[in-house]
């Protein structure tokens, strides 16, 4: 049973939610082999009606304390460009597709998504190109994301503050 998780973080991204929950998209998602779609919609005003048929389930919620579980059980995560969501997904080794909110001008979050895309860790698109990309992208081409090294930070800090071992 393949699961697709869509997350907009603490903000709202109505265009994305409307796009993935449109009948066409649902059909496409199902045809790609997903039998479950989970939407985390934040404070959005587009609130699709959850449903469950024999072959497909749609779940919708606003927030959870931790998205860890939903990311963990997903086979693909579609996310807004927020750093938190992107990094959490990549660290769990999940394929990630970032959808850029064109309505947010000067959105500095794009810098990170673009860079991670350049390095081959994720796909990215806008709402209008999402359906096409869902169809055409090959998840096996994504490179795995090496974890950050906070221990380098602690070693640096220990040294500059004069901490005795």
């Amino acid at each position: 049973m393949k699961c697709l998780f869509v997350t907009v973080g603490t903000t709202s991204f109505d265009d994305l939610i409307a796009c993935v929950s449109a009948p066409d998209s649902l059909q496409k998602i199902e045809s790609l082999g997903y039998s479950r779609l989970i939407l985390q919609i934040g404070r959005g005003t587009v609130v699709p009606e959850p449903f469950s048929t024999e072959s497909f389930t749609l779940d919708v919620y606003r927030y959870k304390d931790s998205l860890k579980e939903d990311i963990q059980k997903a086979d693909l995560v579609i996310s807004h460009a927020g750093a938190g969501s992107c990094l959490e997904t990549l660290e769990k080794g999940k394929p990630l597709l970032v959808v850029i909110n064109e309505k947010l001008m000067n959105n500095h979050q794009l810098e990170l998504a673009k860079q991670l895309h350049k390095e081959g860790h994720l796909f990215y698109c806008t709402c209008s190109t999402l359906p096409g990309l869902l169809q055409s992208m090959d998840l096996s081409t994504l490179k795995c994301y090496p974890p950050g090294q906070p221990e380098k930070f602690s070693a640096f800090l220990d040294k500059v503050v004069g901490l005795q071992k």
Partner: peptide
Amino acid sequence: GSGGHTTEILRLLGSLSNA
């Protein structure tokens, strides 16, 4: 800060010793 800032700074803190 809010959201992502807090997640990031807690990761940094996670690497620091109890000193």
